[in-house]
Computed example of a mutant assay.
Amino acid sequence: MSKLVLVVNSGSSSIKYQLLDPNAEAVVASGLVEQIGEVEGHIEHKYRGVKSEFQGPIPDHEAGLHLAYRMFADTGLALEDAGIAAIGHRIVHGGEVFYDPTLITPEVIAEIERLADLAPLHNPPNVIGIRVAQARFPDLPHVGVFDTGFFHTMSKAAVTYAIDTEVAEKYGVRRYGFHGTSHQYVSEQVAKVLDRPLADVNTIVLHLGNGASASAVRGGVAVETSMGLTPLEGLVMGTRPGDIDPGALLHLGRAAGMDVPQLDELLNQRSGLKGLSGGNDFRELTLKVAAGDERAKLAYDVYTHRLRKYVGAYLAVLGRVDAIAFTAGVGENAASIRADSLSGLEPLGIEIDIAANDQRSSEARIISTPGSRTKVLVVPTNEELAIAKAAWKFV
């Protein structure tokens, strides 16, 4: 019997993919397609411990997916012969309709496309990933796993915006939250690392990548999160601003004559770290900070200030916090961000061990001092494994 699941995570500017055995929790092959639409794109593919690379133009997501599939065959594992039983797709916005893993049908695709107004950087490439995979594997179950799903448990008080009720209900204006698959996976891993029942652990999860979000998770159940109706709200991100006074947009409309498409482009592509410093690569930002670049230093300070503010807010929401977990590209690799965002919080029982924090590892680990009441962890996220397990249930 076929026992593998191909997971396609077709994101806003990159594509991650993995071929997994969900029962053994083993990765057979994996890859990352980056710099889509730029002059020079890059693919890194791993199979049997060997890394293969492609360097060249990747004009769009469809081309990137076809190149990724070709990498499998070129490295000795044609996907048609790999024993794939299902394909799992990460979908960013499920609206109020989708919160459980869902078998993808034409009607489901149409609804995901309709929700693209709420996630314009993400849902369109998600659909491209589905269509390309369905064309290649039309007879396999394709399963959508929604970023918004984990936050379906939040209370009415947590998801409701204080605007006219009839307008909000008519247009679906409420908090949905995103990165849910990652927040769920990481909160579960925290309980394992601490060797405690999940139901007894309260965790603040900080998912810090090009997109960034925070969540408050009580006993494995999400009670609050930083992203809202769209993936724009909350923490400072690579190209998105996070929290901003809505009046600023009204002001720009009146004073600068900016229309909705221009504001959309400003908020989604020219804000965040890129808007503040000129670039959204965190590695480049830290190099600029070290070189004394004032714009980069301000961007870094704004980033850490916002992080600290959300940690404080979620300490109040949860009442008791057993763990703070950093995850995703920046959260897992930027030791300075972890240290600077939590520095000075020792009176609240949060103490980072500097040596442990500076140590690099691909394993989940505790980086707080033995005396810290709240444990601080670095937990590599594995959204692909979580998606594969969800897709396997449809086999």
Rank of each mutant, 00 (worst) to 15 (best):
L32M: 15
G180W: 05
S13I: 02
K309L: 04
K309C: 03
V97E: 14
D21M: 05
A255P: 11
V221R: 15
D100E: 14
L65W: 03
L385M: 15
R131T: 08
G83D: 07
G238D: 08
D81W: 01
V190H: 01
G41V: 00
L20K: 03
I109K: 09
G329P: 11
K51G: 12
E113N: 14
N268I: 04
S271N: 05
S362C: 10
P197K: 02
T75F: 09
V39F: 12
E38G: 15
D245T: 07
I87Y: 04
Y300W: 13
G331V: 00
L385R: 06
V33G: 00
I387H: 01
A168V: 04
A216F: 10
E38T: 15
R320S: 12
A222S: 15
G253W: 01
A248S: 14
V7N: 11
V167L: 12
I43A: 00
V159W: 01
D60F: 13
Y161C: 02
M71T: 06
Y47K: 12
H61K: 09
A168R: 01
L118A: 02
Y310P: 03
G209T: 08
G238M: 01
R338D: 07
L267V: 03
R373I: 12
S336T: 10
W392Y: 11
G172C: 00
G220R: 06
H179M: 12
G211L: 07
A162F: 07
D243E: 05
A168F: 02
D147I: 02
L19I: 11
G349E: 10
L121Q: 03
D245N: 13
G319N: 08
H305P: 04
E383W: 03
S2C: 14
Y47M: 12
K274F: 09
R373T: 15
Y185N: 06
P124C: 11
L345S: 05
H179W: 08
K16P: 09
D195E: 15
W392S: 00
G94K: 04
V330D: 09
L121P: 06
E166H: 12
I128L: 13
E96D: 14
H66K: 15
F54D: 07
R338H: 03
V289L: 13
S187N: 10
F137T: 06
K375C: 01
M71I: 04
G319Q: 09
V236A: 00
L285W: 04
P197C: 04
A86M: 09
E34I: 10
R308S: 08
F137M: 08
R174W: 00
R240I: 03
G172P: 01
K389E: 11
P370N: 07
A214K: 01
L345A: 06
